[in-house]
Simulated assay, not measured.
Amino acid sequence: MHLAPSDPIAGVILAGGLSRRMGGGDKCRVVLGGQSLLAHVKARLSPQCAALALNANGDPARFADTGLPVIADSIADRPGPLAGILAGLDWAHAQGFTRIVTAAADTPFLPLDLVAALSNAPGSGPIRLAASTDGALHPVFGIWPTDLRDQLRRDISVGARKVRAWAEAQGALKVANWGEEAFFNINTPEDLEAARIRARSGR
């Protein structure tokens, strides 16, 4: 399916993980520069999308203050970010969208031109994944057509777990357009301190 760059796109922030290395709980609520990580991601991604939702499991009421619809994994036992992508595809399809962009909830410096650069990159492919200019792939940052949702559902049910492997099997296009720092993610207290230093320096 060919998707024109002008097609409206829905955004899905992925926050369905267990955050074990940060001690559990909602890592996206950790504060950086006076705002939660989720608030940073929302502020950077929302202007790039026609609608925005949060993929998170558990009681959705705890995110009521964000103003975002909360969509849970539809597959039990938290099989990983592919389940979050699937939840986003199902939600977006129900809203009338033909594609979504996904981003991790723990990446406060994500690109402000993520959607435009992924959409406008030359080449074909039903999925477009972000990469940094050093060649590192960041597969949870990508554009996904909603018409792949049934295939993804079937593949998860028979054991698919790795975002990169599944996307590449669908012929994903890799778009290398940013420095590695754009995808800095916070997994540990040490990462959070590094992010705070970066935020204070304005880099």
Rank of each mutant, 00 (worst) to 15 (best):
A136W: 08
W91V: 00
A105P: 13
A50M: 12
E168S: 07
R99Y: 03
S132K: 09
H138G: 00
V175M: 10
G179V: 01
I100M: 05
N187I: 02
L173T: 02
A43P: 12
A182T: 12
G58K: 05
I9N: 08
V41K: 11
A167R: 00
A61F: 09
A43V: 12
V101W: 09
R20W: 07
R200K: 09
A61I: 07
R154F: 03
I197G: 07
N57A: 12
H138W: 05
T133C: 15
A104W: 11
I186K: 14
V101G: 03
N185G: 11
P108V: 01
T107F: 01
G123V: 05
L37S: 11
L38H: 13
H2V: 04
I13H: 03
G135F: 04
G16D: 08
V115K: 00
H138S: 02
V30H: 15
L114P: 12
L37N: 14
K162D: 09
L32H: 15
T188Q: 05
P79I: 02
G33K: 14
F97L: 06
C28M: 12
F141E: 01
K162P: 01
I85C: 09
F141P: 05
A39T: 15
L148Q: 09
A103S: 14
F183Y: 04
L110R: 13
F184D: 12
L86M: 11
R44D: 12
T102C: 11
V101Q: 03
A165M: 00
H93L: 00
T133L: 15
T66I: 13
Q170M: 05
F109H: 15
S201T: 06
S6I: 04
H40V: 07
I71F: 15
F109P: 15
R161G: 03
C28N: 15
P81A: 06
I186W: 11
R99G: 07
V70L: 10
L54P: 13
Q170C: 03
S36T: 15
P189F: 00
D7I: 09
T188Y: 09
R128F: 02
V41R: 10
S6T: 11
L86K: 06
N177V: 06
I186L: 14
L137Q: 11
A169T: 04
K174I: 08
A176Q: 01
D65S: 04
L89F: 04
P81F: 04
A104M: 11
K174G: 03
